[in-house]
């Protein structure tokens, strides 16, 4: 508990501008999806959000470096980031839950197995299997093949696990005051993140070009892309965050004992890593 040093910013224009920008972006997405409008509105919103985030974080960094934050503020940030990551966990939980439900209940039932197997009367030719190559409806064309988990996905797993280790080394180095070591290992982490994104892009290309795994290819394609897709977005965001942190390390930010931005970025990165492990097991291997 503090003795009256808690920093309360007077006013800020970023939040309200940010919400307007978000509204413009959402409206733009809607216009594009529903009415095939050009993506200009969406991009205006997106640029707006990114700018607002830039300015907002700039203010926070200045305040922090200006010594306005006490230890209680530091705890507020920790709770905030921790609960934010918990909300992200629940976001992915929804998609994992959908995957488990489909595999354990829906597909077997459609194929005549289990307590609601009578549904198979509607789909006499359907054979339940996973990955689902032959969706029940004639109009839906399933994938032609699936990935072996032991090729690109395994490489990506190794990359992400390694990146978590390199990030931890960088963090330890920062705590010990070895800024140069920290910088090098952090650079490595960012590069590993970029590698992951490239390989994931390559895999998506393969999926569409050779395996017929598409969004339209029945529930396998749908679950595959929603899980790996949102994970991929998180890797991209995480890599950007780490890159920003890297720039700040370059500029001499972060004290040995007080560098929550660095820690928050590393929490986020580890979370993204853990989600991938879950993906690797449940989407690719099993």
């Amino acid at each position: 508990m503090s003795g009256g040093t808690y920093y309360v910013p007077a006013t800020s224009r970023w939040p309200v501008l940010g919400s307007v920008a978000l509204g413009i972006m959402m409206f733009g997405i809607g216009m594009q999806l529903v009415y095939d409008a050009s993506s200009v509105i969406m991009l205006v919103g997106l640029v707006g959000i990114l700018s607002v985030m830039g300015f907002w974080f700039r203010d926070v960094v200045r305040e922090s470096r200006g010594g306005l934050y006490d230890t209680q503020m530091d705890r507020s940030f920790r709770w905030g980031m921790g609960w934010f990551i918990f909300s992200e966990v629940m976001f992915f939980a929804a998609f994992f839950g959908a995957l488990f439900y489909i595999r354990t209940f829906a597909v077997p039932w459609l194929g005549g197995e289990g307590e609601k197997g009578v549904s198979a009367l509607l789909w006499p030719d359907f054979v339940p299997q996973w990955p689902l190559m032959n969706p029940p409806g004639d109009a839906v064309v399933g994938p032609r093949g699936t990935f072996s988990p032991w090729q690109l996905p395994l490489v990506n797993t190794l990359i992400l696990v390694t990146s978590s280790i390199t990030l931890t080394v960088a963090h330890e180095a920062l705590k010990e005051g070895h800024r140069k070591v920290c910088r090098n290992w952090l650079t490595g982490t960012v590069l590993l993140g970029l590698c992951f994104i490239l390989i994931q892009g390559l895999e998506y290309y393969e999926a569409y070009a050779h395996y017929g795994i598409t969004l339209e290819a029945g529930i396998f394609g749908a679950t595959f892309f929603i899980l790996t897709g949102f994970h991929g977005v998180h890797v991209i965001v995480g890599t950007i965050i780490l890159a920003v942190i890297l720039v700040r390390v370059h500029q001499g930010h972060f004290a040995k004992e007080n560098h929550f931005a660095f820690e928050a970025a590393s929490w986020y990165w580890h979370f993204v890593d853990v989600v991938w492990i879950g993906l690797f097991i449940f989407v690719y291997v099993i």
Binding site: Y101, I102, L122
Partner: peptide
Amino acid sequence: TSFFSAAGGGD
């Protein structure tokens, strides 16, 4: 996608 459509294996 077919998350909520049985024809694609969803529910």
